[in-house]
Computed example of a mutant assay.
Amino acid sequence: MKKALVVLSMMFMTMSYAQEIKQVPQISVAGEGKVKVVPDQATISATVETKGNVAKDVKKQNDQQMEAVLKVIKKMNLSPADYRTQRVSLNPVYDYEKKKTSYNATQTVEILLRDLSQYDELMEGLVNQGINRIDNVIFQSSKLAQYQSEARKLAMKDAKLKAEDYVSVLGQKVGKAMTISDNSQIYQPQPVYARMKTMAMDESATTTRETLAEGEITITANVSVSFILE
């Protein structure tokens, strides 16, 4: 009997608690914000590649060409913090048809160019002094954090505008936000490949010319927001 009374008491308390819970009218929407900016700097990844039959000679030639490349970089008064050796390799390559081993040496330097007006001069200097492979060029903004903040604010405004559009026909109003989820992807600048490889292979180019067309980069923020309806 006591057990039955306890069970009935718990059921009564549960029902009473459930009656006190009120459904809160709400709406969930997604918002997107985009900021387009002209990049003001670039990261250049450039490689010296040499081949030959004697490992020692191949490595020596590679070192000499990279030394000349570094002199070009220093001549342009770039900060030492803005360039670094990224990769160094010396690998044997076996030719099964000729049954002969050759060697391939590479050194890659990564350069952060903060002044795009130096771009053409730097690229031609690199190619003329031994760079024979431009792996990629990534255009970016030095004010990325600022533009990401702007994009997030635009995304929130977009979400609220969508919510207001939906409820405007119902005679209701959008109230406070209950939940906010940031769905933004990590910003990854897109590299430029083909145009720079073409320039690198054009060894006959001797006159100064303008080859840079950096265009715009887009910084995007995405949010999901749940608003209370009033």
Rank of each mutant, 00 (worst) to 15 (best):
S168L: 10
A145N: 13
A155F: 00
I134H: 01
L144H: 04
V137I: 07
Y147C: 04
V137Q: 03
L154R: 12
V169N: 05
K143W: 00
D135F: 04
L170I: 07
M156V: 15
R152Q: 11
Q172H: 14
I134V: 10
D158S: 09
M156N: 09
R152Y: 09
S142Q: 10
Q148C: 04
V137E: 01
M156D: 10
A163S: 06
Q140H: 11
K162G: 02
R152S: 09
Y166N: 08
S142A: 12
N136D: 13
Q140N: 15
L144V: 00
S141E: 02
A145C: 11
D158F: 03
Q148F: 01
K143G: 05
I138Y: 02
A151K: 07
D135Y: 06
A151S: 11
V169S: 09
L144W: 06
V167L: 08
S168E: 08
K157N: 15
I131F: 08
I134S: 02
A159D: 01
G130A: 02
I134A: 04
R152V: 09
G171P: 06
I131A: 07
N132T: 05
L154G: 05
A155C: 04
K160V: 13
D165H: 11
L154P: 05
L154F: 08
D165P: 00
Q148A: 01
A151H: 05
K162R: 10
A155Y: 01
K173W: 10
F139K: 05
Y166F: 15
D135C: 07
I138F: 01
A163M: 03
L154H: 02
S149M: 14
S149Q: 14
Q146H: 13
Y166L: 14
V167I: 09
L161P: 11
Y166I: 15
Q146N: 11
V169F: 11
M156H: 06
V169L: 08
S142D: 06
D165S: 11
K157Q: 15
V137K: 00
R133W: 07
D158Q: 07
D135Q: 12
L170M: 09
D135L: 06
S168H: 10
A151W: 04
L170R: 10
L170E: 03
L154T: 08
E150S: 10
E150W: 05
G130N: 02
I131R: 04
K143R: 10
K162H: 12
S141A: 03
K153E: 12
I138A: 13
L144A: 05
K160Q: 15
D158H: 03
A163Q: 01
K162D: 02
S141V: 01
Q129R: 09
L161H: 15
D165A: 11
E164M: 09
L144Y: 01
Y166T: 09
Q172C: 10
A145P: 09
V167D: 01
A151P: 03
A159M: 04
Q146Y: 14
K160T: 12
N132L: 04
S149Y: 08
E164Q: 10
R133E: 11
L144I: 09
S149L: 14
K162T: 08
E150A: 13
M156T: 12
Y166P: 03
Y147Q: 08
L154W: 06
G171E: 01
M156R: 10
G171W: 13
L170V: 04
Q146K: 13
D135G: 12
R152K: 13
V169W: 07
S142G: 13
A155H: 02
N132P: 03
Q148K: 15
I131Q: 00
Q140T: 14
N132A: 06
K153I: 15
S149R: 11
Q148N: 07
Q172A: 12
